[in-house]
Design a protein around this nucleic acid. Structure first.
Lengths: 234, 234
DNA sequence: ATAATAGTGTCTTTCAGACAGTATTAC
DNA sequence: GTAATACTGTCTGAAAGACACTATTAT
């Protein structure tokens, strides 16, 4: 390539990995072992290797850094962060950020490039100082998850293959913060074509058994569910 | 950087530049002068230079390649394309794509790195074979513009500082394809707090003078306008 | 039976869509 | 005046939110 004024950059994939734990939205944070920003909390992520796409980098780092398998999660590209000031190292590093959603994701363990890795409630994580521009990425990622719940079936990515209506409502309540009126939620979800489909089975718990559903074929929900309907808890 | 398995990449900014011309949505395409994909139609774009962010690259290329000034447009980051197969050259090139919206953008002229540059109606452009993965980027960009009109004030980016309700409706009709019921559109827009604000002035045309509005302070529109309400023209 | 959870019915209000009708200009 | 465009009023139907009520289980 002739023009040496062109920048050459390392490409990182950084991930906002979200799951529900005891009904609370959590995100994975790792404490950095590398010398740059050593000891600081950060989002998990790593560098794109030769021949990889950024998406493959994300999947690989999920497995290597936090022990999460490709089949357990749904990936959604968030945004690319490219300010020269975002990384103090002399070479340029741009970050392609991802939102990663999964059901019952396992405990995370620190791999080689982290001193520590753990699930942190997002409300706490949003208050923590993070390495690089990861606080901004985290905030953008949470907001993306919140808004995508409105008009896509994405909430089902937080649940197993079969789930109850209460569990689905619980996802919305956890991600949006607050409560939703059960009757109206129920009616709304069933009125949207392809959002969920009944399995015919039920699951017994403390009270009346709940019908089970699985994710339907619709990718988007119209008309959307709206955050306007959350009732101010939390 | 010790690990040589890390990929190093050139970073391109490619742009889906949209404007309305005689009520029809148009996009800028350029015919490539470079040897790679020579002569093919492509989205305007170029490589990130040293010390630039990808956003600055986009603004610079807009000016250099198609003669559009920063103040004339609104930029919105679309997505990053990073498949190794997306560029035939031996070094990696990833593209950070942008959607660019402007009012009455000028005729475009081919700069040094293009044989030709012109405004093309998007319906035509979507049918054209384009260089690299630009056909996919274009389709994604159009869809982004269409969906963002629903729940943001973005439509005003296609208009001058002061505009009539008909002009605003014309933006929606051009981008979505079809017609909207004028009375309902009018009522809806005015019912959304901060979407537009009246200037007190009017503009005379062939019929009754139309009140002028300017963009309001709201960034998002709630409840959204919906594409469901377009009446099937086109 | 009671508590607990799941699910239904129904009332009210809001708002979108249709469309008839009025207002203000150019000619 | 007429044509053209801008704007308003009003009816109807769909759907959201509130909430009372019924259903089915475990204990």
């Amino acid at each position: 390539m002739p023009d040496s004024s062109r920048e050459v950059a390392y490409v990182a994939a950084d991930m906002v990995v979200l799951t529900l734990r005891q009904g609370v939205l959590h995100v994975v944070l790792v404490r950095r072992a590398a010398t740059t920003e050593h000891g600081k909390w950060a989002l998990p992520g790593g560098f794109m290797k030769r021949g990889e796409s950024a998406e493959e980098t994300a999947y690989r780092e999920l497995r290597e850094e936090v022990g999460i398998k490709r089949s357990e999660v749904v990936l959604e590209q968030l945004k690319t962060y490219s300010l020269p000031s975002r990384d103090p190292r002399p070479h340029r590093v741009i970050s392609v950020a991802w939102v990663v959603l999964g059901a019952h994701l396992p405990e995370v363990h620190a791999a080689t490039d982290a001193l520590e890795a753990q699930w942190v409630p997002v409300e706490e994580a949003l208050e923590m100082p993070l390495a690089f521009d990861h606080a901004e990425i985290l905030a953008d990622g949470i907001e993306r998850a919140r808004s995508k719940l409105e008009y896509t079936r994405l909430a089902t990515a937080f649940l197993d293959g079969e789930f109850t209506m209460s569990e689905l409502r619980g996802v919305y309540e956890a991600v949006w913060g607050g409560t939703l009126e059960p009757a109206n939620f129920h009616r709304k979800v069933l009125s949207v074509d392809g959002f969920v489909e009944g399995t015919g089975e039920s699951r017994s718990g403390r009270g009346r058994p709940a019908k089970l559903y699985r994710a339907g074929s619709a990718r988007t929900i119209y008309p959307p569910l709206t955050r306007a309907s959350v009732r101010g808890d939390r």
